[in-house]
């Protein structure tokens, strides 16, 4: 069946269900209005029969009418009931199939990445933390610090590494604008800067998150499933392949060689806080803990 057919079936079944419920409700309302009135008529007729036996035919007719009406309602309601069950089955079947079709694996993954249990808190927090990063930091970068650093460390080639370190410490990464400025006001060539900054692991050219998460991938942690931990965190933080920081710049994920506490494997560090004996779920919880501690 095509999706269009399924959708049509679901709508039709839903309409029939609504109609069925309407019929049942109307039936019930009418019956609950009629019942006391009918009872009163019968009682009045019974009184009359005591005085005038000729009325008994009328009483019989009245009682037969009431019984027939009630029996008809019963049969009608049963039929509506079965129709409702059949239509609900069609409706549920169609809707379930539609949902299964409209939710391919990509959507599933995004649901994994943002568990609803913590969704609300996260979203609220996210907004406040987004406020800090709302404007692209590169756009309105204050380059004054570069000048200060150059004044302190000198303009020669030998000052390249201390300069880069100072800049990285200040901006928490090496922004392109700062590098350009550095080339302008020093003797260091762009090639030298690019070469130096890409050679050493300590320099990074993309903005870093508020918290650094170091997932240990040493031998013990690797054996204990560090890969699963990293994958899980990536999924949760929605960090795409080839990136290491989430969209809100809250967390930067690093895979490090060893944190030196193999007995706690698999282990990770969020800034200075260590969490060990992790499962994918507790690893994510460790990040959430940090996030919750954030002043709102």
């Amino acid at each position: 069946m095509t999706s269009a057919q399924l959708r049509r079936a679901a709508w039709a079944a839903g309409a029939v269900i609504l109609a069925g419920i309407a019929i049942l409700t109307a039936d019930w309302v009418i019956a609950s209005i009629r019942a006391p009135r009918d009872d009163r008529t019968v009682k009045a007729l019974q009184q009359k029969v005591k005085e005038d036996p000729a009325v008994s035919a009328k009483l019989d007719a009245e009682q037969k009418r009431i019984t027939d009406a009630r029996r008809a309602r019963r049969i009608r309601d049963r039929a509506v009931g079965w129709t409702l069950i059949a239509c609900s089955a069609i409706f549920l079947g169609a809707v379930k199939r539609l949902i299964a079709r409209s939710a391919p694996k990509a959507v599933e993954m995004s649901r994994i990445a943002a568990p609803i249990s913590t969704g609300k808190k996260r979203k609220r927090k996210r907004k406040t933390c987004c406020g800090a990063h709302a404007h692209d930091p590169a756009a309105a970068l204050d380059l004054g610090f570069v000048d200060e650093a150059v004044a302190q460390h000198g303009r020669g080639r030998e000052a390249a590494i201390p300069l880069l370190q100072a800049i990285q410490q200040h901006y928490r990464y090496l922004p392109d604008e700062a590098m350009r400025r550095l080339c302008e006001i020093t003797d260091i060539t762009p090639a030298e800067i690019a070469g130096t900054s890409s050679f050493y692991g300590q320099f990074r050219s993309t903005p870093v998150g508020k918290h650094i998460v170091r997932v240990c991938h040493g031998t013990a942690c690797h054996v204990a499933g560090a890969r699963q931990i990293s994958d899980e965190l990536r999924r949760r933080l929605k960090i795409p392949e080839g990136f290491d920081t989430d969209a809100d710049r809250m967390f930067t994920l690093e895979e490090v060689a060893c944190l030196g506490c193999c007995s706690l494997a698999p282990v990770l560090m969020v800034d200075e806080h260590t969490a060990g004996r992790l499962t994918p779920a507790t690893a994510a919880a460790a990040l959430e803990e940090v996030e919750e501690k954030e002043p709102a």
């Binding site: 599933e108 649901r111 994994i112 499933g225 699963q228 899980e232 999924r235 499962t279 994918p280 779920a281 507790t282």
Partner: peptide, 19 residues
Amino acid sequence: ELDCGLCTEACPYGAIDQM
């Protein structure tokens, strides 16, 4: 199993805790 967490997502009753 894999410890991949898909089951946690699939459970509508919240009966899977920490995988």
